[in-house]
């Protein structure tokens, strides 16, 4: 998902405190920042929310790529609003992570020097306008699968950030699908472009959920803490079941020859993505990893004078005010 393969931290603490903490979570209570929490819970959440926030921020790049080349002024305004939302989502999430005792600048530095990750999906290029449709439809669609259940996560600030994000995310998916509808019902060349976008983004979208974690101890711990609500396979299955009929409506073909409805399980059988490719992307060897991190580093470095300048201006004004009093 936007947070993939988040390792949960082992916790060695007073068993009584741990049991009381788990009881609160089991009872559906929200954990708030000042409450006692196991160190592992705190660390895992910082990692997960941070990765989620970074994904929103880096996720602006593949779409920002098309703002100046949108086919109409209306599409341009819509895409601009969507990309602005992603910045907002990143900010909500950074603030949620900050309540755990890490600062936004610290997290940013960890992203920039590679200590923290963002979702593998944003290391793929957006080659045509149809990709703007496919990203909204598939990538935001996959994100929604994960974010809707996270509205019930145990950590209060994270759950509240997810509620805000989910309210806005549906606009993202629908605008993407609207682009796909337009392309798929256009000229043969436009329809081919839409099919090509689906071909390239289908498996990377399935990778967003991460490899099967049915046997992962990290997942068991995170699920007990309710910071992970479903297994990766459950969410992937749900995503496929929801998306295939949408592709059929568009008259497009999902690029998976093994795809077949399975009556018994009430869902589709489908091919796994190439996990070797996934691990390469995670390691930094995807098609756009270097470009994405370079763009973030450039923005951070070139924005330094603005950050410092505004702070200096604020301090100067404060001093003048004090002097005047």
């Amino acid at each position: 998902m936007y947070a993939q393969m988040v390792k949960s931290e082992a916790t060695q603490e007073d068993p009584e405190l741990l049991a009381a903490f788990q009881a609160r979570i089991d009872a559906g209570e929200k954990i708030e920042p000042k409450d006692w929490m196991p160190a592992g819970y705190r660390k895992t959440l910082i990692r997960q929310i941070g990765q989620h926030a970074h994904s929103e921020i880096v996720g602006q790049l593949p779409e920002g790529n098309w703002i100046t080349r949108a086919p109409t002024l209306e599409r341009k305004a819509i895409l601009l609003a969507k990309v602005q939302d992603e910045a907002g989502h990143g900010l909500y999430l950074y603030c949620a992570a900050e309540t755990l005792g890490v600062t936004r600048d610290e997290m940013t530095e960890m992203l920039l020097d590679g200590r923290m990750k963002y979702s593998s999906i944003f290391n793929y290029p957006t080659l045509t306008w149809a990709d703007m449709g496919a990203v909204g439809w598939l990538v935001d669609g996959a994100a929604i699968m994960n974010q809707v259940p996270l509205q019930r996560t145990s950590f209060g600030p994270y759950a509240r950030a997810m509620i805000r994000v989910c309210k806005e995310e549906s606009f993202h998916q629908r605008q993407g699908y609207a682009v796909m509808m337009k392309m798929a019902s256009g000229t043969p060349a436009q329809k081919a472009m839409a099919q090509n976008a689906l071909n390239r983004l289908w498996f990377p979208s399935l990778m967003m959920f991460g490899p099967s974690d049915a046997d992962s101890t990290h997942s068991v711990q995170s699920m007990a803490w309710k910071i992970k609500m479903n297994t990766n396979d459950e969410l992937r299955q749900k995503f496929v079941d929801q998306t295939v009929p949408q592709a059929e409506y568009l008259g497009l073909t999902v690029p998976d020859k093994t795809l077949k409805w399975n009556d018994e399980k009430g869902g589709y059988d489908f091919a796994e993505p190439d996990w070797d490719e996934f691990f390469e992307v995670i390691k930094g060897n995807g098609p756009c990893n270097t470009e994405r991190l370079a763009a973030r580093n450039k923005a951070w470095d070139e924005g330094k004078w603005v950050r410092d300048g505004l702070l200096a201006h604020a301090q100067k004004r404060k001093m003048r005010k004090v002097a005047a009093e």
Partner: peptide
């Protein structure tokens, strides 16, 4: 740092210009 953040989490941090 944040009204909700436990004190112990913020006091050890070096001063940053944020």
């Amino acid at each position: 740092a944040y009204p909700d953040t436990p004190e112990s989490q913020t006091q050890t941090k070096p001063k940053r210009r944020e």
